[in-house]
C-alpha cells in the first residue's frame, strides 16, 4: 500500500534493502553466494528452454501428497513433469511425448546434482528422493538440441 496508490509498488522494499545494506546488517550468507557462483555450471549451451503450458490439472483443490503437474513444450516435444513431496524429498515422474526414441536420456536436475534416466519406450521416466527446492528436467536427444524445462520450485 502506498500514498500514491500505485499497485504492486516495489520502492519501499528497495529502500528497506538499501538501509540494511548501508548498516551492514544481515549480509548475504556465504552459502547463498556459493550457490550463486555454482549456478554458472547449470548453463545448457545450445539448449532450448521449454515454456510452461497452462494445464487444467493444476487448478482446483489439491491435498498434500498429491502430485503437482506441470507441462512444458519446445522444439516439437512435450515434457509432462509430476512432482510429489514425500518427507521433504521430491519424487519426480514424467513423460516425454512423442517418445524420444533410442539413445535419448532424461536428466532431472537440482542445483546441486542431477540424475539421468533412459526413458521407457513410451517416454516415461522417474527419479525419487531428490532434495526439495529447484528442479529442471532436461531431455537429451541424439543429434538434437537438449530441451530443458524452466526451473521449478517445489517444496512442502
Amino acid at each position: 500500500m502506498t500514498d500514491d496508490g500505485l499497485p504492486d509498488d516495489h520502492l519501499p522494499d528497495y529502500l528497506l534493502a538499501a538501509l540494511r545494506m548501508a548498516a551492514g546488517v544481515d549480509p548475504v550468507p556465504g552459502r547463498v553466494s556459493d550457490a550463486a557462483r555454482d549456478a554458472y555450471s547449470l548453463r545448457l549451451p545450445g539448449g532450448v528452454v521449454a515454456a510452461p503450458y497452462e494445464i487444467g490439472a493444476v487448478v482446483g483443490a489439491r491435498s498434500e501428497g498429491d502430485p503437482a503437474m506441470h507441462r512444458f513444450g519446445a522444439d516439437g516435444i512435450t515434457l509432462d513433469v509430476e512432482v510429489t513431496v514425500t518427507d521433504g524429498r521430491l519424487d519426480v515422474a514424467g513423460q516425454v511425448s512423442p517418445a524420444p526414441g533410442p539413445g535419448a536420456r532424461v536428466e532431472v536436475r537440482t542445483p546441486g546434482a542431477g540424475e539421468t534416466r533412459t526413458p521407457s519406450e513410451s517416454g516415461h521416466f522417474a527419479v525419487a528422493g531428490l532434495p526439495s527446492g529447484w528442479i529442471s528436467v532436461v531431455c537429451h536427444r541424439p543429434g538434437l538440441a537438449p530441451v530443458a524445462t524452466r526451473w521449478l520450485h517445489v517444496r512442502d
Binding site: R20, M21, V28, P29, A36, W151
Partner: peptide, 30 residues
C-alpha cells in the same frame, strides 16, 4: 548478490526462503 539477498529479505522472507528466491533468480538468469 548482496543486493539480491537484501531485496529478498526486505520482501519479508526468512533466511531459507530468501536463499531460495536468490537462487531462483540466478537460475532464471541461466
Amino acid at each position: 548478490g548482496g543486493r539480491m539477498w537484501a531485496v529478498a529479505r526486505a520482501c519479508g522472507l526468512g533466511p531459507a526462503d530468501a536463499a531460495d528466491a536468490v537462487q531462483g533468480a540466478w537460475l532464471r538468469m541461466v
